[in-house]
Write a protein that binds this DNA or RNA. Structure first.
Lengths: 201, 201
DNA sequence: GTCTATAGCCCGATAGAC
DNA sequence: GTCTATCGGGCTATAGAC
């Protein structure tokens, strides 16, 4: 049994990956050790040998998913190009919209928010994302892409929320449409934040 | 057993209200008939006499919650005042942020989105809200509150998403702060959509 | 490390008395 | 209408053999 994120055996990895998938598909309450074992092709004893139980395994899985989500966002945000282009690349990335956000979706689960170790990766991921977007937008303002009244931190908070809310609306509609409409509306609002013509460096 | 939303007995009402509360607190998967009966002060037989089972009772509860949410939004959006004031009133309404949205929270549950009758109230509520916000914003543009390039429908979609996403971020953080930051950022973006000085009617 | 067996509890639902 | 009894099954976890 370990949960410190180090290498681990093949079986342990399979268990973590199966848990990641099931947490995404069914949430924490809806994910049973039994289902994890079946998807991982491992037995009871195997799972309880490597992990202390469902919460322990879930903590490892959520940490890994958070890391992966952060890496994907960083890939878009650290591209070449203007701030607006990088934000657009982040927002326009292909997503399996109807599946929802692997991290944000867990925030709905009462057992997740009640367990500080389970909730921490959610909080840290969104805080990191907001801070990273703030950096990008602040660079954009410094370059004259946005006017001096433009608020990088507040806008970053809004961007993160629109993506998460877009997932909620799409799943409610059973259709990715509302997700894209919300993002398009946001981009149009952003486009109007341009500095006055001629002031751009 | 009924589920057509008509008056019904006192016990049936208590069961629906208990279900509304539990769906909000624990989600659909996390809500058991047993827990509903205990909170409503009713027995097994009572519940299965009035309703066909958990899905049937949940459908009645979700429809009622959706109606209540819509009424609350309409109260803010039909006030006296400018479009911007009404949107601000809607966004600024007191909310128990950490509880999340009674309707949007259910979109995360796979059993809810898989059941068309259970998902329909979610879709309809958000569609109605978006349409209503579009109306308000279009009035604002007609009155000269916003410039001619302003996009009421796209902005309405974004507004709905920011609120839903704000709940996700707040629950992830265990703190209402991110909800309010996202809304403030949105309002700042909206403020920059003003028509040029002097063009307002 | 992995297996099977078992535990005790809750799930969602049905049956039938009153 | 409401009650209690009961069902078959899944849940999370532990025990102990191999």
């Amino acid at each position: 049994m370990y949960s410190t994120g180090m290498s681990g055996t093949d079986t342990a990895h399979k268990l973590i990956e199966a848990t990641q998938e099931l947490l995404w598909e069914r949430g924490y309450v809806g994910t049973s050790p039994r289902a994890i074992q079946q998807r991982a092709g491992a037995g009871q004893g195997s799972m309880y040998h490597h992990f202390g139980g469902k919460p322990d395994l879930a903590r490892a899985a959520v940490r890994k998913s958070a890391q992966e989500m952060r890496a994907a966002a960083e890939a878009d945000l650290s591209r070449e190009g203007s701030a607006r282009e990088r934000v657009r690349a982040y927002l326009g990335r292909e997503r399996s919209v109807l599946r929802g956000c692997r991290i944000g979706g867990l925030a709905q689960d009462p057992d997740v928010v009640a367990d500080p170790e389970l909730r921490a990766p959610l909080q840290e991921t969104f805080e990191w994302l907001r801070a990273r977007l703030t950096e990008v937008l602040a660079e954009g303002r410094a370059n004259g892409e946005f006017g001096p009244a433009f608020d990088p931190a507040g806008t970053a908070a809004t961007i993160v929320a629109v993506v998460q809310g877009g997932y909620v609306l799409a799943r409610s509609a059973g259709d990715p449409g509302p997700f894209h409409e919300a993002l398009d509306g946001l981009l149009r609002l952003l486009d109007c934040q341009a500095a006055e013509p001629g002031t751009r460096s």
